[in-house]
Design a protein around this nucleic acid. Structure first.
Lengths: 159, 159
DNA sequence: AGTCAATGATTGATGTGTCAATCATCGGCT
DNA sequence: AGCCGATGATTGACACATCAATCATTGACT
């Protein structure tokens, strides 16, 4: 019986990915793209930096996945008029539909994964996740608004 | 506050990877290689198929990681005399040392992740992981001996 | 024996992720 | 105004994972 937590986490994470990947693929999405359109569908248009921050992935990865999403007709990029460095990402209609379908798929998988869990067990499981996460990232803003960049309190008097 | 389990799992998995990756990199290992030498150190020499089965990854990925491990001097491949399709993977001394160092790193990270968890909470957390995993992979052999491929009592009197 | 399906290992193509470097823009500073 | 560091986006190089296809070997069945 496996008892190391890194293996437990590895296996569950891997199993979830394996189960959900085909659902995204059926929509014409790669394995990383669904979460982006999910975010866009939930929170509305945003910049690439917001996506990278929220999912804690490299902006380069976001950039390439958006290339793919744009090519697939799921999203569009436009330049922010106030800050021309920043792009604004929007879902197309096709993207919105795919997001809805994927949200359903994610819900299905969650139901399957947590089948037999009582409401309290789910809450406890989630609480464990959050505690463990905060232990690994004590400085993180997990649970707070990711849209607030928190600007470092400015004690940054570099020399 | 994030409440979807796929995000909780995503974030914890990602955080763990982020914390542990530099520890492997310090040993000259990529992000996927430590688990292989860990397995080899714990269970002894084995075939590539065993590694692929145990970690539930594509044999192609194992093959390429072993290329890297071999090139780095961590492991060696040799051909099984009974079945020349099968290769036997062995750790070198350098590989064994790296495995020991990595096991320590993994333990450190686990300690950090589960800081403040009581023994019972850890057990319950682990039990939730196993239940969720089994829900996603009901046919799996999670928890049984993966090293015993179940067949072969196999009377090796073939010569 | 000799064909043939199954198996272990490998290679190619593609998507995701990291790290490092670059480019364009912005904003503060003198 | 003009430098100059910070920032958002992008690109290149590499590692890991999947899928598909191939190769060599094996074992089973005529």
């Amino acid at each position: 019986m496996e008892s190391r937590f890194y293996m437990l986490l590895y296996r569950l994470s891997h199993a979830q990915r394996t189960v959900i990947r085909p659902r995204g693929a059926a929509l014409g999405l790669g394995s990383g793209q669904p979460k982006l359109i999910d975010y866009l569908a939930r929170k509305g248009p945003c910049s690439q930096k917001q996506l990278a921050d929220y999912f804690e992935i490299d902006p380069a990865a976001v950039c390439r996945m958006l290339d793919a999403l744009e090519k697939g007709g799921f999203a569009s990029r436009s330049v922010d008029k106030n800050d021309r460095r920043t792009g604004t990402i929007r879902l197309t209609d096709k993207g919105s539909q795919a997001a809805a379908a994927w949200q359903q798929a994610a819900e299905d998988v969650e139901q399957q994964m947590l089948a037999g869990f009582t409401r309290q067990e789910k809450q406890q499981f989630a609480a464990y996740f959050r505690r463990a996460y905060r232990n690994l990232k004590p400085d993180s803003s997990f649970g707070r608004e990711p849209a607030l960049p928190q600007e470092e309190t400015q004690t940054r008097e570099k020399e």
